[in-house]
């Protein structure tokens, strides 16, 4: 643990976090803080660095300058990886495997919460009856739901969701909101990117506006 963490509740702490590629700034220096039970919407136009920010927090990219800690660990280290889950544009599902088989892989890689099964998790996202269907034959929205249920299985405290509302119908959007609600109640935190306004009932939401 680093002594950097001042707040015991803090899950993400970023100071002057910035990223540039080929010396062109992609992400301007950013300061923010996310504690347990808190959710932050990352807003900004296309190319404002929303995905880059999530990739840095996940540990896929190294920040060019500044500091960021996840539960006191640097992103990408073992400690931070145990706390973090990223749901990106690519859902990370194998098209030839069924929904249930994909969840099994996710459980093997990330572990799962006590007493949660793959089928149960699929039923929660409204995919009861689609367990054995190969991912390839599902619609874009259904694929997204499978990815969400894989996310919901795990016990990571920090969720990094890149455009989770894309490709989802009204019911799907409600589903994401409910999932986020429960996740925050369990003491988790989430960083969610959107380019549109989304109504979310939680009171403890922040907005992180990225400008380029």
């Amino acid at each position: 643990m680093s002594n950097f963490s001042t707040d015991a509740n803090a899950i993400v702490e970023a100071h002057a976090l910035a990223f540039s590629r080929r010396d062109e700034p992609i992400l301007r220096p950013l300061d923010f803080h996310l504690g347990t039970g808190e959710l932050s919407f990352v807003e900004g136009d296309n190319g404002s660095g929303k995905t880059t920010l999530l990739n840095i927090l996940a540990g896929l990219l190294r920040p060019s300058s500044g500091e960021v800690h996840i539960s006191g660990y640097a992103p990408g280290t073992d400690g931070a990886r145990a706390e973090t889950r990223l749901l990106g544009h690519q859902l990370g599902l194998k098209g030839d495997l069924s929904a249930r088989e994909n969840l099994r892989v996710a459980m093997g890689l990330y572990g799962c919460r006590e007493g949660v099964t793959a089928d149960q998790s699929l039923a929660e996202v409204g995919l009861c009856g689609f367990e054995d269907e190969p991912i390839r034959s599902l619609s874009a929205g259904q694929k997204k739901r499978v990815a969400l249920s894989a996310l919901n299985l795990g016990n990571a405290r920090l969720w990094l969701l890149d455009e989770p509302f894309a490709n989802l119908d009204r019911a799907g959007i409600d589903l994401v909101n409910t999932m986020l609600d429960l996740h925050l109640q369990r003491g988790g935190a989430a960083l969610v990117t959107t380019h549109g306004a989304v109504s979310f009932r939680q009171e403890q939401t922040h907005k992180l506006r990225l400008n380029i």
């Binding site: 495997l97 892989v105 093997g108 890689l109 572990g111 006590e114 016990n155």
Partner: peptide, 21 residues
């Protein structure tokens, strides 16, 4: 909570790849 052991990931990937094959 069940945290994944070293072998669970190994097994998950091996099973997945054999299944895909």
């Amino acid at each position: 909570m069940t945290s994944p052991g070293l072998f669970s990931g190994f097994r998950a990937i091996l099973q997945r790849d054999l299944l895909l094959a």
